[in-house]
Structure formats: C-alpha cells, structure tokens
C-alpha cells in the first residue's frame, strides 16, 4: 500500500487538531485557579477538582449514571444474545421485520423517543424512577449491542455447533461451551458500547429524570445552561479521563474500530 504524501499528512494533522481542540480546552480550563473560564489557564490549580467534592450533586449524578449504565447494558446484552442467535441463525418468516424493529431506535429522532418515553412513563406514574430510566435506556442501546453480537453470530461457522451436537452435547451445553465462547468478543464489545452510550445519553434522559435520578450528562447540561464556571470543566475532565481509560482497555482487547464499525476490519 502506498503511503501518504505531504498534503495528506498536513490534512491529517489539522484534522487531528480540530478533533482534539475542544477536549484540550476543557481539560486546560479545569486547572484554572480563577473563578471564571480562561484558556490557557493563568496557573495550575486543583481548586475546581476539589470543588467537585463539595458538590455532592455531581457525585450523586455520576453514581446514578454508573448504575444506570451497568444495569441497562447488562439487561440489553442479556436479551440481545438470544435475539441475535435467532436472527443470525437462518431465515424464518418475519426475520427482517424483527431485525428492523430492533434497530429502529437508531432511526427515530432521539427527541421523539424522549417525549414518547415521558408520555408513557408519566401515564403509568413511573416518570423519574430509576427502573423507568433503565428500561428506556435498554431500548436505546439494544441496536448497538445487537449489531455487534449479530456480527459475531453471523461470522460463526454453523457446523461448529453441529459438531458439538453430533458429539452428544445438549443444546444448553452447546450454547455455554461452544457458541458463547465463540461470540464472547462481540458480547463484551456490545456491553461496553452499550454502557458508554447509556452513560453519555442526554437527549432522551433529559425528559425523564427527576432530581433524585439526575444523570451526569443531564446535571452537566443544566449546569452549563445556567452558569458557566470551571466546575463543569473539571467534572468533564474527570469524565474524559474515565472514558479514555475505558477506551484504551477496549482498544486493547477488542479494537476500537471493530467496536464502532461492528465487524472485522483488521
């Protein structure tokens, strides 16, 4: 394969700067000793990181987000594995419709989903409850999990399961010992992507939280729309570091592009 020329290198450099600029700025601002947003900061101080500790709101919101992400990613993965085995296991009448239904949350504008969930939950009197949030998030993240799990199910040689059956394994054993280990990268990748998507979700969540179940993105959003102090920057910096750490781990074990494209690409 030919390598890039000067123009391509320059282009990539400028593009990388563009992608990194807003993140660098947020991280930079969070170290300011001043009480307002300034970049580059006039000094280095951890004042605004300490301020996080004095704002239990943010910490509570982060805890809600973590719990929400773990719960919804786990439920979504648990229901997507059998669904992917069904959809990826061969044709049957209604298969395409089923797949289209499970992927449809990607095509419906999120703001529409947000008000639909609000209407539904408030009719049932469940608006703002944690489990109401969880199941709304499950619907939103199912397409991400399904795509990754499906990709690994489709890539599976069907005769492997048949070989195990022919050797006398009952179907649950075939699943546990043969199928699951073979699709586990897709399952883990799907769970992580689902967790991150849920952890970052704003547009839907903003409609269906109450003060007790406010998530981190919602808390940040409402804080930003009211005041802009360096506190949001320091909270964001912590969130960025958390994501970057998770990302590096995922990239090691699964490949970031595979995770996001959803198929083998190396």
């Amino acid at each position: 394969m030919r390598r890039n020329g000067v123009f391509a290198k320059l282009f990539s450099l400028v593009f990388a700067l563009f992608m990194l600029a807003p993140l660098v700025v947020v991280v930079g601002v969070s170290f300011t000793p001043e009480g307002f947003l300034e970049f580059p900061p006039s000094g280095i101080s951890l004042r605004w990181f300490r301020a996080i500790l004095d704002n239990p709101d943010f910490i509570d919101a982060a805890i809600v987000s973590l719990q929400l992400g773990v719960a919804s990613a786990t439920i979504a993965t648990a229901i997507c594995i059998p669904a992917a085995l069904a959809i990826g296991g061969g044709r049957f009448p209604g298969r395409d419709a089923l797949q289209a239904l499970f992927l449809s949350p990607l095509t419906v504008p999120t703001v529409v989903l947000g008000i639909a969930f609000l209407r539904f939950l408030s009719t049932l009197g469940l608006n703002g409850t944690f489990w109401g949030l969880v199941f709304c998030h499950v619907v939103i993240i199912v397409p991400f999990v399904l795509r990754l799990v499906l990709a690994s199910v489709v890539g599976l040689d069907p005769s492997i399961a048949r070989a195990a059956t022919s050797l006398g394994a009952p179907s649950l054993t075939v699943f546990r010992r043969i199928t699951l280990p073979a699709i586990i990268p897709g399952v883990v990748g799907g769970w992580v992507l689902a967790f991150i998507t849920s952890f970052d979700e704003l547009t839907v969540t903003v409609f269906i939280v109450n003060p007790a179940t406010t998530t981190l993105p919602v808390k940040l959003f409402s804080h930003i729309t009211q005041t802009t102090d360096p506190l949001v920057a320091s909270v964001s910096t912590v969130a960025i570091l958390f994501t970057v750490a998770l990302m590096l781990v995922v990239d090691r074990i699964y490949g970031l592009d595979r995770l996001l494209i959803g198929e083998g690409s190396h």
């Binding site: 593009f15 992608m19 993140l23 970052d200 704003l202 993105p217 959003f221 994501t243 990302m247 970031l256």
Partner: peptide
C-alpha cells in the same frame, strides 16, 4: 493509524455535552 483512530473515534465515546462545552469555550 491506531493513534489517529483513537483521535478520530475516541470523541465518539465522550459525551456530546462535554464536547459542546469545549466548543462553547472556544
């Protein structure tokens, strides 16, 4: 390429609120 993939795709995993905050500061 792997460095650039992190740079290009990484932001996808960071909350839109955080990224937009960056643009507001810029």
């Amino acid at each position: 390429r792997s460095v650039m993939i992190l740079v290009v795709l990484g932001p996808l995993l960071i909350s839109v609120v955080v990224r937009t905050l960056g643009w507001a500061i810029l």
